[in-house]
């Protein structure tokens, strides 16, 4: 146990057990480059990221590498994080808002081992937040970077499967097809029938898939002070939204964009504002709604301990 530096997170120390596989300096595994990727790959991803930031919302292809987790588990996000992260960073990883799910725990542990970074579950304390399908409830600030895991970067792919054709449509800013889809939704259902991955226009030019975040989170992307990076590993695309950039959810003047939220309060912290998950509690139809963002919910519960202790 004495080989484990005192500052290391408990989960990492526990995961490593008695084996001394770290190089000792920063709790990093020996034999891996900082952040797992080799320097050539990092340079390629870094060049891609800079062009992505310079052209907000435009999907830049990159040479996606095989990572030690399967496609669909965040290989794009993990490569972006690996190219950006350094020993001064503090990493938070969430999966559907939760810090304690398998995907979030293993990615956090991965970077604690291969990059020697400190990790946290607090949104406020993190310098890099890798996320699968949520934006934290706590507003992000300047200096933070949020990395989205993206399964399908092309917002038009359900309408136009040919990549060559969608690329042409982006070049011409020809997004009529998406407007027709929204119109048909309204004609058929009375409202736009998209509750997650709701398409957005970035800086008034590029149509962008915000990754499958609930449409509830879309307004948080607009003029966000933090830098937003998106990585799609299987589809080999990286895109970005710089800070303070207009991100507008597509809508019509007479059918304005309406984010969806369950009409309830969180059963644990009582929040009326946060995005809620529905949890089935028994097999007789019992169900409760709880915050999807675990850090937000825990912070609120800690701030009101007396009522909860009855």
């Amino acid at each position: 146990m004495s080989a484990v530096p005192a500052a290391r997170p408990a989960e990492d120390a526990a995961a490593e057990g008695g084996e001394d596989r770290s190089d000792g300096s920063a709790g990093r595994l020996a034999g891996y480059n900082l952040g797992y990727l080799d320097e050539n790959t990092k340079r390629m991803i870094r060049r891609t990221l800079l062009k992505a930031v310079a052209i907000p919302g435009h999907q830049v292809p990159f040479g996606s590498r095989e990572m030690p987790l399967p496609y669909g588990w965040g290989t794009g996000g993990i490569q972006v994080t690996a190219a950006v992260i350094g020993p001064e960073d503090r990493l938070k990883v969430i999966d559907q808002g939760a810090d304690d799910t398998t995907n979030a725990v293993s990615i956090r542990r991965f970077f604690a081992r291969v990059a020697g970074v400190a990790t946290t579950e607090r949104t406020r304390e993190a310098s890099i937040i890798q996320t699968r399908h949520r934006i934290p409830e706590t507003p992000l600030r300047e200096g933070q970077i949020i990395v989205y895991q993206v399964p399908m970067p092309e917002p038009l792919f359900r309408l136009e499967p040919r990549v060559a054709e969608t690329r042409r449509m982006h070049a011409l800013a020809d997004y009529g097809l998406m407007h027709v889809k929204l119109y048909e939704d309204i004609a058929r259902h009375g409202q736009v029938a998209i509750s997650y991955n709701y398409p957005v226009m970035v800086n008034g030019r590029y149509l962008m898939a915000p990754s499958p975040i609930p449409s509830f989170d879309n307004p948080k992307m607009d003029r966000m002070p933090a830098l937003q990076l998106f990585g799609a590993g299987r589809e080999k695309r990286i895109y970005a939204v710089p800070p303070y950039t207009a991100v507008k959810s597509l809508d019509f003047e007479d059918h304005p964009f309406q984010p969806v939220r369950a009409p309830a309060a969180c059963a644990l912290c009582g929040s009326q504002e946060s995005y809620l998950d529905e949890v089935v509690t028994d097999d007789r139809g019992g169900r409760i709604f709880v915050c999807s963002d675990t850090d937000y919910c825990h912070t609120r519960q800690a701030a009101q301990p007396r009522e909860a202790a009855e």
């Binding site: 900082l34 990092k42 870094r46 930031v53 190219a83 350094g86 830098l227 710089p242």
Partner: peptide, 17 residues
């Protein structure tokens, strides 16, 4: 490795702001 990472973060920050 470390110097390139720190330098990249400065360039990324410059390009983002």
């Amino acid at each position: 490795v470390l110097d390139a990472q720190r330098c990249f973060r400065a360039v990324l920050e410059a390009m983002a702001r």
